[in-house]
Design a protein around this nucleic acid. Sequence first.
RNA 1: GCGAAAGUGGCGGAACUGGCAGACGCGCUGGACUUAGGAUCCAGUGGGGAAACCCGUGAGAGUUCGAGUCUCUCCUUUCGCACCA
Length: 872
Amino acid sequence: MQETYDPAAVERAAQQYWQERRAFEVDESAARPKYYCLSMLPYPSGRLHMGHVRNYTIGDVLARYLRMQGYNVLQPMGWDAFGLPAENAAISNGVPPAQWTRQNIAHMRAQLKSLGFAIDWRRELATCDPQFYRWNQWLFLRMREQGLAYRRSGIVNWDPVDQTVLANEQVIDGRGWRTGAPVEKREIPMYYLAITRYAEELLRSLDGMPDWPERVRVMQANWIGRSEGCDIAFPYAPDTVRATGADGALRVFTTRPDTLFGVTFMAVAAEHPVALAAAQHDAALAAFIEECRRGSVTEAEAAIQEKQGMPTRLHVLHPFTGAPLEIWVANYVLMTYGEGAVMGVPAHDERDFEFAVRNALPVVTVVRSATGAYDEVRQPWIAAYADYGVTVNSREFSGLAFQQAVDAIAAALEKKGLGRKRVQYRLRDWGVSRQRYWGCPIPIIHCATCGEVPVPEEQLPVLLPEDLVPDGSGNPLAKSPAFYECRCPKCGQPARRETDTMDTFVDSSWYFMRYACPDAPAMVDERVGYWLPVDQYIGGIEHAILHLLYARFWTKVMRDFGMIGFDEPFTRLLTQGMVLNDIYSYQAEAGRKRYFNPADVDTRRGPDGTAVHEVTTPELGTVRVTHEGLGKMSKSSGNGVDPQGLVERLGADTARLFVMFASPPEQTLVWSDEGVQGAARFIRKLWNAVYAHVAAGTAPALEPRRLDAAQRQLRRLAHQTLAKATDDIGRRRNFNTAIAAIMELLNSIGRFSDTSPAARAVRHEALGIAIRVLAPITPHVCHALWQALGHSTALIDERWPAPDPAALEQDMQSLVVQVNGKLRGHISVPPGASESACTQVALADSHVQKFIAGKPVRRVIFVPGKLVNVVV
RNA sequence: GCGAAAGUGGCGGAACUGGCAGACGCGCUGGACUUAGGAUCCAGUGGGGAAACCCGUGAGAGUUCGAGUCUCUCCUUUCGCACCA
């Protein structure tokens, strides 16, 4: 054993050992129970960042811990290899995306390996591999056969910078999620997956997923957004039919059919067909519609902007009273929800109220407050107006409570053929077409005679050409005749291949199944039945809605196709927090703000005691920079820490220990170079402790019965620590407190100066426990130290130790003594001492007596093993 | 605006089931060793107080023998959704 800890040598040796033994290659033949531990696959951006290190370290600690607990653990890794950054890199460097992506993968794979993750690399996959994405195409066609994938023209979110369509989920505050550019609306044909058919099940199943964070389930439930209500058809008035040739009725969805008699106007979205028809003969209205459609502002701004609208002079008739109701075009009605039209009930809907007041429309009260908050609705608006109550002023439907009114009105509407109860979801079908090159081709051929024709199964995969270089304008596939020119599979005439590619969320919706059977000649095989569902999934909270909802949907589709036998892909979910670091900036008088890495900032105390931050550069000299607080590590804030440099300087174990110790996995982690030094210091101390122990010669066998009190105490601490760490890691997933407990144990071992043979046996056992508990976290150094302790078997094949109940037994127990709830002393009693015995000892304590001070004892609270509280 | 979570030393955080607040680490202070220290080791480190003690978990109330933990009101922060009829 080396006297000083050399992380590079230790890590090289351990990794080599694991690789030679193929230690992490697993199959389905093991007699042990399986455990599938999965971390979200990375996008191959070029370099590993600290968020990756945190994510994969958490996964690796769990995988290694469960392996030690006797599970057959699968931990795979792959690459989310399609996507925009590769195209952007191609535009700036002229390198084909395929080449850029594969180089990045090679580099990042090496970085991951240097961190010593227990990954079965035989199963590695990249989503840009045709043997992977061919199954996207295959399942897409099967979904198309079932009507689950379809093409329609729709209003889509258009990112003017990336020149592509964005899913609703990719629009954040009205801006593109990648570019931050304000999103425009465009109408183009594209493919959709009918996720809304699964809305109900996707929502319901959330209740049966107790091992997902509450927060994620709530976010998904809100996203699906189920509302119960009623479809109502308002027949067009005869003059409107004459004027526009409209046929039938204006349909709306409402959750408040009980307020139907309070309708005083109708409101439709600017894109609604009725609005467009009315605008044909009304220039002012056409201008208003154009203004709404441009929607210059973000959605967040739109939500608080004034309710504006214009009348169309078109009318519908109330389904029961036959009264004419004017149709307005209103900027607060969304074309994409419900029917794109609402019934205006100013008395009982805040938005309608605001609109009616602004446009001098009548307000008719049709619900009387059940709580007596109001009789008649008038300005200003109060929240109680929207509460459920008893109907009034509603003809034969008056005097009914909410649910009765809904039932009666829905039944009456249904009789007339003018409406029925319905459930409406906020969730919309998933638009998967992307006008991009670097993605999975959609396997469709467009033929002038036959229309839309699926690529025959034997012609799959539709290969993406890998030699194109995008130039920044539009989709290179659409400019590549070699790709799009083809023959119609049906009639053999020249035809055009679809040049849109699939959203990359398609790839990540099922990649975790392919890991189970990476070489299968089908999409999945029976090995998926062995490994899936994933027992533990680990990834960023930013995927709480998109990726996780799509993967759940895709899983249910494959289940319904009979391909797999489970309903949900991920049994347990852990969402790790972001990695934050200080942000420092320098703003020259003229010019752009510059950011500096915290590692380059010198901090000292100024004359008034406040911190002064300075940076020295050749061009600026020494300048004062501003501390802007904490922010996520990012290129734009210049506050990233390169994992590779850290591993080279201090070792993978130090990096792993720090990220696991600094905070619990779900919380944000604040980077601290001093904290990293502390982690390195701890590993050195552990190394030195083992070295000193080993240097003193072989320890004798432990004889638990022949220990003195101090020896028994250290042994008890070792086993208590083991019990706590097992609970912290296995049940609570609080790795930081498990590490803290081991630090305490090591501190106690350090203070324990007894060099007798019995003491050395105790120390040997305690160090062995510490090393095995730390093995999942700092596997390399523990591998070396385990050998140094004289074990002939490798640590990677060790089982997790169990605490010895005999070691945990206490000679005496310490109880807290309180007087009137305040801490006044400690007493020592035999374990299991009776209440009266403990009370007697407590009352005898002189310090306790001082506070009782002769006052009569009214009551004594006794909590066995914990405390005695004397109430006087 | 709606929904969720969270506010604890100089900092990251601990206190899991209502029972010793501040474990562990960082930083800081003093000391030892040293040619030197951004190395290592030892001691100290919530505030007030000479001490006895007192005070202390965003603010205020409440329940309880006992509250960081439970209840209510308010404040602040973060995250998610954002005119969803």
